[in-house]
Structures are given as structure tokens and as C-alpha cells.
Design a protein around this nucleic acid. Structure first.
Lengths: 188, 188, 188, 188
DNA sequence: CATGAATGAGCATTCATTCAT
DNA sequence: CATGAATGAATGCTCATTCAT
């Protein structure tokens, strides 16, 4: 929408990641975004609403990205690999958003309402997992636990790549960790 | 050491988990710990030093707990399972500490000095992994990545158990997720 | 004049009485009056000028009302009773204006210039009192003090009626308090 | 109690009268009282609590002053005159308190709880009036209305004296206005 | 060692006012 | 005439830290 609003969102994302939510004053955000202090409150009723809007918008962007090029017919492994590779490339291309989720997904600043709303955008992943388990393609564990394990593996991989930026064989690493995960989780 | 110091540490741990670091005032900690506001600063030079001390001490306790009953001769799988089970039971018995690590391990409040110091207490786990890889018992991946994957699986499992407290077959769940992990990571 | 100006005046009167001058933002007045925020400043240079205009216009209306049906020949008592009854009925019919005067007559928001200008519209009441004293119909006190006593009795009466809206014998009450006042103040 | 608290109360009283409640910042009060900005909030939880405390304490002082030297046996006229003279001298000796009551008695800043609490300290005046009416010494009007009329006459008199500080016959003026009031209100 | 009154820099938020459209 | 997005100074309040006792 408004260009000023977009600049506020982008600046807040950067600063919340680098210095933390509470350590970042609204005055700093405004200044760095090049708007007046009052302007922030024109677009966001409060600092809390700002971080919630940030979360919501990032989550929706990610959900949209996940669904791009979703393979319709291939095997469960290929579908899962699609998610894996989408998630990895999104995280590497949007490092601030990735850190933001790691830092604030479980923080008290994100209201449960926001979490619920955002969760619905990812319902399709839960559905996918449940269908695959029922079809006998995956080990029979709770779908929520599955998502948690998948995210854990993902975080570990991305974290490793981020902390070792000199590595050149990124695709090899991500394929390897996916292979480990798949080896563990697949029914066979 | 001093009993007052211990009460301050315990109260801070609880409050930092429940309300967050920045949302918890030193006055609140002091009052809840039953000491005067000045007393906190007698034992900790600043609020920052307090949270760093908290981190250091919890990390050291955990390292000590890890080494208890460490099996000296058995197989790599048994040794790894020892860590797994120690970590799970510690997390379930010390929920505040577990949440504390999740919340603050990557926060800017914990100085890199503190992190380095604490990492050394866990050097033996890195050593163990590297030996096992060299011995051909584990898939040949970076030892740091291995630890990250292990921790990710661990967090996912504990998180799942914590969010589903009605479950009675806790051991079954932890054994299952360990089995998945081992199936993926082991060389065979 | 302009219908928008009139709506702003009316809305401001209501809100200043109900929530106070400083507690009412110009944005709120504009919104409730159905005009844009800038429009208010088209008709009134500042918020201060708005409240001063409000005061001036209300005062002039009241002065005009006082002079309606002014008895030309009757006795001093009848003339005074005319003012009494006009004032009472105006106050009961224009409760917002009445409260407004009570709240802001001595406030620092109304400039002394405004007060002076408005006072001139009531010069005729002072003249009336002074003539009556000279003619020996009233106790020989300062005319300003007389007006103050009259207003005090008036406020007390209206306040009592307003706080006891269930009373049905309003005319009896106002006649009685006027009688008390007259008994005290008349020369006899 | 605390000397700092007393200085804050005194400064706030002065500034609220001279510049109004909302026009006086807590920073200004603190500076003028010679304390730090935080100190004000040490003694008063909020600016609102400050003005309520001010009201309560002034009201209680006044009530105490009223009861000093209360004549036990004399006539109703003498008792009423006692209140009159006490009130006048209190108002002239405590001009800030007097203005404060005029400005804030009906303001929304004083909570109804505060008003109720303070009203109880003046219950004895209502009792006195009711007894006197029953005994047939005063005109049979509502006791609340009586108090309102008495206060109105009082305010008018004090206002007149304050606006005409050059007058030397203050006692004559107050005796005269009391006489007018008594002439009107007494049963005879 | 221990206390808690006092400090004052820092922050989120409001709002009268302007001005480009 | 009318609009409303944008401004930024001003304000009530918090809280880590100090220090006299």
C-alpha cells in the first residue's frame, strides 16, 4: 500500500532482528525509515500492532511462496522435497524474516490471535502430512510432531549454512540433510 | 553461595521465562525474591550480568547432568541414546531452564563471551561425535551440523511433549523420535 | 453562517462539557461534526480561538435572551424577577451552555480580551443595579458584589434543580429562592 | 510525612491553580518542587492520583478548621456566623486552596470516590442545617439547597474581596453579606 | 552485608497544526 | 472551500542504578 508504511515495516524487521523488539524504540524505527515519529502510529495503532502486522505479513508471504510450483502428481518424497527446497531458499533469500520467525514465533509479543490467523495459512501442510501418513508413505506419528521435526531439521540446516557462509556446496548439504530426514521418516 | 543470591537467581529464571527479560523489572525480581532492590546489585553488577550468570550456571548444571552415568564402553548408539534420554528428562524436570535456553540462547542479552565460555563445557559432546564419525559409525557430516540436527530433533520432541501434557506414553514417543533420528543418521 | 462552522461549534460545546477542553482533540470534534480535520482550522485559527468563539457567541445569545420581553415600567422587584426567571429558563433549556459557563468562565482558556468584550454585552445589568441602588430600592452594596450574589443564588438554584430532576414543583423552588434573595437584598 | 512529598503537593496546588491541571506537566511540578521526575511517581501513582490527594487533604484540613472553636450553646445565627467567618478567613488565608476548590470541585479529574470520601467530613454541616430547620430557626428548604445557597453567597463574597484587594473594611463587607443572607434565610 | 528512597534518562504515544491536492 | 496524510514537539510514566544510612 503506502510507501511509507512499507518502509516502516522493512525498517522494523531489520531492527527487531538486529537489536530486539524492546531494545528498538519507535523513534529509531521512524528515523531510520525516514518518516516522522507520528507517522508510525498513523499506520500501526501501537508498537505491538506493528510487530504483529510484521509477523502476519511475513507468514502470508511465506505461505504463498510455498505454494508456488507445487508438484501436483509426484510422490510424497518429491512433494516433501519441494517444501524443503522452497523453505531453504526462502530462508536464505530472506534472512531477516527467517531470524524474525526464530526470535519471535514463541515470544509473548505475538498475540495468540495473530498466531491462529497465520496458522490457517499453513493448514494445507498439515493436511498433506496427514494424507501421506494415512496412505502409508510416512512413519505413523502425530502430524504436529512431524511438522516440528521437519522444522527442526530445517532450522538446523539453515543455521549451519548461515554460520558457515564460506561453504560452496550448499545444495549438497541441503540434499544430504533432507536425505537423512527422509531416511528416518519414510516408511520402508 | 549466599542464600539471597540463590533466591534472586531462581526468581529471575522464573520471571524471565514467564514475562520476558525486558518485561521483568529488577524491582519485581527483588520483591518476589524477598530482598531489597539494592541487594540484587550487590551480587550482580547489572541486570545484564544477572541474565548472563543465569545462562552460565544453567548451562554448567546441564553439562554436569549429561556426564552423570555416562556409559564408558557401549556402542555409539547407546551413548547417543544416553544423551538423548538425559536431555529429555532434564528438559522435562527443569521446564524453566529449558524455556530459558529456547528463549535466550540466540538473544542479544547473552554476550558472546558467555556463549563461548559455556560452549567449552560441551566440548566433550563435539569430541564424541567426531570420534564416532571417524570410526565410521555415523554419517559423515560436519560435527556442528550434527549437534544442530540432534538439538533440533530434541527440541521438537520436548516441545511436542510439553504441548500435549495428557500423553501417557512419553517414553514411547521419545524412543520413537530417537529411532527416527538414529535411522537417518546412522551409517548402515 | 456556514453550516459546517455551526456543526463544529455545536459539537465542540457538547464535547468540551462532557469531556473537558483538553481531553477533547480537534480530530474528535471534526469527526463527530462530520468534517475533515483541516476544516476546523479553516473557520478557527486555533483550538483556543474555537473555545473563545464559543464563549463569545453563547454569552451574546444569553444577553439577547435577557433583553427579550424586558418590562419597561414595573417595579425593581419585577424587573429583577424577570432576569431571574429568564436566567433560570435559559439555563434549564440550554444545559450545555450553562455547564460550559460554569466550567470555563474562570478557566485560563478564555482570554481576558474575550471576557472584556463579553462583559460589555451585560453592562446594562450593572446599570440597572446601580440605578436601583441609587433610587433606594436595593441595599447599598457594590454593584459587582450584587451581581456576584445574584449569580451565586442562581447557580445554586439551577444546580439543585439539575441534580434533582424528579422534582415537579420547579416553579415553586425558583420562586422561593428568589423570595429569599429578595427578602435579603431589598431595602425595607 | 516526607518533606519531598509536601513540596510536591504545595507546588502542584500552586501550578494547578495558575495554569490548570492539564497545562501543568509533571516535569514542571517536579522541577519547581526541586525533586526528580521519578520522585513524584514515588509518592503518587499517577498525575490523577496527585490531584485527588490534593483535593482530599485540602478538604480534610478545611473540615478540621471548621470545627475549631465551634460554639456549643449559642443560637443558630451565631453558629451559622461561626461557619461563615471560619470559611471566609480560611479562604482569604488559603487563596490557592480556595481557587483550587472552585476550579476542580466539579471537574472530571476528581473521582467520585474522592468526592464521596471527602463529603463525609462535612456531614456535620448538613446535620446542623437539618436540625435548625426542624427546630424552626431556618426557612424550610432542602438542606442540600441551603448548603448550595450558603456556598454561593460565600463564593461571591470571597470573590469580591479577592478582586478588590484595596478594600480595608473587609469585616464590614463580610458582616453585611452575612446579614443579607441571614435576613433572607431566617424564619421571622 | 543489606536497605530502599531518590534519581533522571529514555520511551510509547498523542495531537494541534500544516499543506499539497 | 474542503480534504486528510503527515508532522514532530510535548507528555506521563518506567526502571536500572546509586548511595547514604
Amino acid at each position: 500500500m503506502s510507501e511509507k508504511r512499507a518502509r516502516i515495516i522493512a525498517t522494523a524487521l531489520k531492527l527487531f532482528c538486529e537489536k530486539g523488539f524492546q531494545n528498538t524504540s519507535t523513534a529509531t524505527i521512524s528515523k531510520e525509515a525516514g518518516v516522522a515519529t507520528g507517522t508510525l502510529f498513523l499506520y500501526f495503532k501501537s508498537k505491538d500492532e506493528l510487530i504483529n502486522a510484521l509477523y502476519r505479513e511475513a507468514k502470508n508471504e511465506l505461505a504463498g511462496f510455498f505454494q508456488q510450483d507445487f508438484p501436483t502428481e509426484p510422490s510424497v518424497e518429491n512433494k516433501l522435497y519441494h517444501f524443503w527446497q522452497k523453505a531453504i531458499s526462502w530462508a536464505l533469500e530472506n534472512p531477516y524474516q527467517f531470524r524474525f520467525f526464530n526470535m519471535y514465533s514463541h515470544s509473548p509479543f505475538i498475540s495468540s490471535l495473530t498466531k491462529e490467523e497465520s496458522a490457517s495459512a499453513f493448514q494445507f501442510t498439515l493436511d498433506f502430512v496427514e494424507e501421506a501418513i494415512e496412505a502409508g508413505s510416512l512413519a505413523p506419528i502425530d502430524s504436529g510432531l512431524f511438522i516440528a521435526l521437519f522444522s527442526g531439521q530445517l532450522n538446523a540446516t539453515v543455521g549451519f549454512l548461515t554460520q558457515n557462509p564460506q561453504l560452496t556446496n550448499r545444495k549438497a548439504v541441503t540434499d544430504q540433510t533432507f536425505a537423512l530426514f527422509w531416511k528416518g521418516i519414510s516408511k520402508s
